[in-house]
Simulated scan of single mutants.
Amino acid sequence: MPHRNPLLESVFKIDSETDFNRIALSVFNYQYNHVAVYRKFCNALGRSTPKHYKEIPFLPISFFKTHTVLSDEFSSDQLLNFKSSGTTQSIRSNHFLALPELYVNSFMDTFSKQMVDPKDAIVMALLPNYIEQGESSLVYMVDHLVKVSNHPLSGFYLSDLEALIQEIQKAKQTKKKIILFGVSYALLDLAEKGIDLSQVVIIETGGMKGRRKEMIKEELHQILCDGLNVKHIYSEYGMTELLSQGYTDGTEYFTSPNWMKVVIRDVNDPLSLRPDGKTGGVNVIDLANLFSCSFIATDDLGVRKGNRFKILGRFDQSDIRGCNLLVN
């Protein structure tokens, strides 16, 4: 076990832009010194001494599929390993969880502030494919929320829609807030039942997973609102490679916690950042990723407004694949 890293305490106490910049640079220096693949990547770019977080290099997210992105203070064979969801043919990302408390502190703080304190809620989950594939960071998070809720109606319902519907009817008789996490295609299956979930906060996540045709988010949410009789569908922005999340607030925009920041890169010049309101590739700084890599260039397209951001879709892999040639 490594020494107690002083950055552990400071990450979750960030409350200003100055704080964020100072700690982001400290995290960069730690990861440059201890995460071999990230150090090679930065050296290949000739960027090893940033003076501001906007100058820090962002590692393409695909590296989590091809390399072990982990501090040399840990051994991967002793750690919990989160894997991304995917088809049987696809290579899944690996994210080794060095300290579970980092992940738990991150998602508990964000969920409690942006959604509800799980102790005051009934937390239900319709995430069949994540359960089937295993090693899911989303299942780990929701399972923890279920346990903290400490309610007999909280839990995972796999593909048993009838059981879920019955238990939601029971939950409506309580004074608890009802939270339902659902993968997109399973929520569509539920919406086709034509039931009234007007008292339920629905958090859509995870996409179609090859089970249904892809559709734009606005179309999906309108179908779900109509079929489930709710005013809003909420979304979570999270992924295997991140230990932090953002949630929508009834609009299309996600809010980041104080230790997570989205910046937008120029699609044609990945080392350049775009100003607020301009579309580009989504780069995420997640300082909870202390022992892997906190600076990640995702495959998403988006736009940022202050500490809020909107996801517009994905872009062609060829735009970033060349970055992999920098590191063997």
Rank of each mutant, 00 (worst) to 15 (best):
Glu236Lys: 06
Phe12His: 12
Asp269Arg: 10
Cys42Arg: 12
Cys293Ser: 13
Phe295Gln: 00
Glu17Ala: 11
Thr251Trp: 02
Val35Leu: 11
Asp77Leu: 00
Val27Cys: 06
Lys172Trp: 01
Met108Ile: 12
Met124Ile: 09
Tyr253Ala: 14
Asn289Val: 05
Ala121Pro: 01
Glu55Arg: 03
Lys176Ser: 14
Glu73Cys: 10
Glu219Asp: 12
Pro257Lys: 02
Ser294Gln: 04
Leu301Glu: 09
Asp319Trp: 13
Leu326His: 06
Gln89Asp: 12
Lys177Arg: 15
Asp196Tyr: 11
Ser235His: 08
Ile61Asn: 06
Ile179Glu: 08
Leu99Val: 14
Asp269Gly: 03
Phe291His: 12
Tyr130Thr: 06
Glu55Gln: 14
Ala121His: 08
Ile178Thr: 04
Thr49Pro: 00
Ala121Lys: 03
Ile178Glu: 01
Ser272Asp: 09
Leu138Ile: 14
Arg265Trp: 00
Leu161Tyr: 04
Glu135Cys: 09
His151Phe: 07
Thr279Tyr: 08
Glu204Tyr: 04
Ser48Trp: 03
Ile179Ala: 11
Gly281Met: 05
Asn258Lys: 10
Ser93Glu: 10
Ser90Lys: 13
Val262Cys: 09
Lys113Asp: 09
Gln133Ile: 15
Ser48Lys: 03
Ser75Trp: 02
His34Lys: 13
Thr240Asp: 06
Asn5Cys: 12
Lys65Asn: 12
Phe64Arg: 04
Cys323Leu: 15
Asn43Phe: 03
Val267Asn: 06
Asp299Pro: 01
Gly306Lys: 02
Arg47Asn: 12
Asp160Gly: 10
Leu243Thr: 01
Val148Asn: 04
Asp226Lys: 15
Val27Leu: 04
Ser318Asp: 03
Val148Arg: 02
Gly155Ile: 11
Gln169His: 10
Phe107Asn: 10
Glu236Trp: 01
Asp249Ala: 01
Met260Arg: 10
Ile14Asp: 05
Glu73Lys: 13
Leu243Ala: 03
Phe156Met: 12
Glu132Val: 13
Glu236Met: 07
Glu101Val: 12
Ile311Arg: 04
Gly155Glu: 08
Gln169Asp: 14
Pro257Tyr: 03
Pro100Ile: 05
Phe254Lys: 00
Gln31His: 07
Gly277Gln: 01
Thr110Asn: 08
Ser10Leu: 09
Gly277Ser: 06
Pro275Gln: 08
Gln114Val: 02
Leu197Ser: 06
Val327Asp: 10
Val201Leu: 12
Pro57Leu: 10
Thr255Asp: 01
Ile195Thr: 13
Asp316Asn: 15
Lys54Trp: 00
Ala125Met: 04
Leu312Pro: 05
Glu132Phe: 13
His232Phe: 15
Ile285Met: 03
Ser292Phe: 04
Tyr140Ile: 00
